[in-house]
């Protein structure tokens, strides 16, 4: 087998990526319809994309995905492949719930929400900073260490839910009171602001330039005086801030309470998938995360007819996988030589 690189125009790559994404989506839907009644599945797909209610819900769901994806676009541009957004989202939503429902600190309304969000962001950033410090000072690979931290965050929050936060006979926490909940318009505004902010950092600041240079040529970046430590710590703090913020907004806009997680809820992982799908472009990432959250809504309707909720993440990874393969076919020519002596 020979793999030859070839030059592909931007249009060709975009076209192939779109075809790939669509193919992945269709394959995933077909796999689900093999097991269930195909007409039920199709009806749910149509319902999600033709009504306003699911689209509104999708915009709500997209905030944790988009926030973590936008932070990760910066990190991935610096070739800092952290997967820790999941744990940061979980911690962000947990600390928000704690601050509003359990801490007993009563402030005036906008300030308490603001303080909760700031607290969640800081916690996310600190959790993300652990990964960066482990990478810089101990040489630990950031992929595995961030994954392990996700599990630690999940089990810690599960423990809190099962013990001190639990109310009544069921393992469920208190809910966020009605007046603290955020509206769709606020979420849309946050989405736009975050996207523009990420784009601004990437395209208009010295730090964004240093990220780009360090990602493409680490040695050259060092030679020109960009400090790798500063870059890695910077991107990990920003991605952690954003993921924690996403978790806080998720809790305030649609989650409202926590239940024990047997497997990760997946908003952070979806952010990782979106960052890969969008080739680390913030604007595409925002659009892609709304698309992905329509799949979350679809998953919830499919759940009613017997598809497990974790299939959402499977549909999404099928989409990303086939997109990556489709883009690769635009970039490489592959020649098979079956008989090689």
């Amino acid at each position: 087998m020979e793999v030859l690189e070839k030059r592909a125009t931007r249009g060709e790559i975009i076209l192939k990526a779109l075809i790939g994404a669509l193919t992945g989506y269709i394959i995933a839907i077909i796999l689900a319809s093999i097991i269930l009644n195909p007409s039920d599945v199709l009806r749910s797909v149509l319902w999600v994309y033709t009504n306003t209610t699911p689209i509104t819900t999708a915009i709500l769901f997209s905030i944790p995905i988009a926030a973590s994806a936008l932070g990760l676009t910066l990190a991935y541009r610096a070739k800092f492949i952290t997967i820790g957004a999941e744990g940061q989202v979980i911690l962000g939503s947990a600390v928000t719930l704690w601050f509003i429902a359990y801490s007993g600190i009563n402030l005036q309304l906008p300030f308490s929400i603001l303080l909760a969000i700031i607290l969640a962001s800081i916690l996310g950033a600190l959790y993300s900073l652990i990964v960066a410090l482990l990478r810089i000072y101990a040489g630990a690979n950031e992929i595995l260490s961030s994954l392990m931290l996700n599990f630690i965050a999940m089990y810690t929050v599960n423990y809190l839910i099962a013990t001190s936060w639990r109310i009544g006979p069921f393992t469920i926490t208190k809910s966020i009171p009605e007046e603290y909940r955020l509206s769709v318009s606020f979420i849309i505004a946050t989405l736009i602001v975050l996207t523009l902010l990420t784009w601004f950092i990437l395209a208009r600041t010295r730090f964004g330039l240093s990220i780009e240079v360090y990602g493409r040529a680490p040695r050259a970046a060092e030679t020109y005086g960009y400090s790798p430590k500063t870059i890695i710590i910077g991107v990990s703090i920003i991605s952690g801030l954003m993921a924690g913020l996403g978790g806080a907004l998720a809790m305030l806009s649609f989650q409202h309470h926590l239940t024990p997680m047997s497997s990760p809820p997946g908003y952070g992982y979806m952010g990782v998938l979106v960052a890969w799908l969008s080739a680390n472009n913030p604007i595409i990432a925002m659009v892609a995360s709304i698309f992905f959250s329509t799949i979350v809504v679809l998953g919830r309707t499919l759940q009613a007819i017997g598809v497990p909720l974790s299939y959402v993440l499977a549909i999404q990874s099928m989409i990303v996988l086939s997109t990556l393969v489709a883009v690769a076919t635009a970039k490489y020519t592959i020649r098979f030589r079956w008989f090689k002596w």
């Binding site: 997946g266 990782v272 998938l273 497990p308 499977a314």
Partner: peptide, 15 residues
Amino acid sequence: TGLLLVFLAWGLADL
């Protein structure tokens, strides 16, 4: 690819 395979396989396993 590895991580995508994890998520895909988790979903397929539940299915």
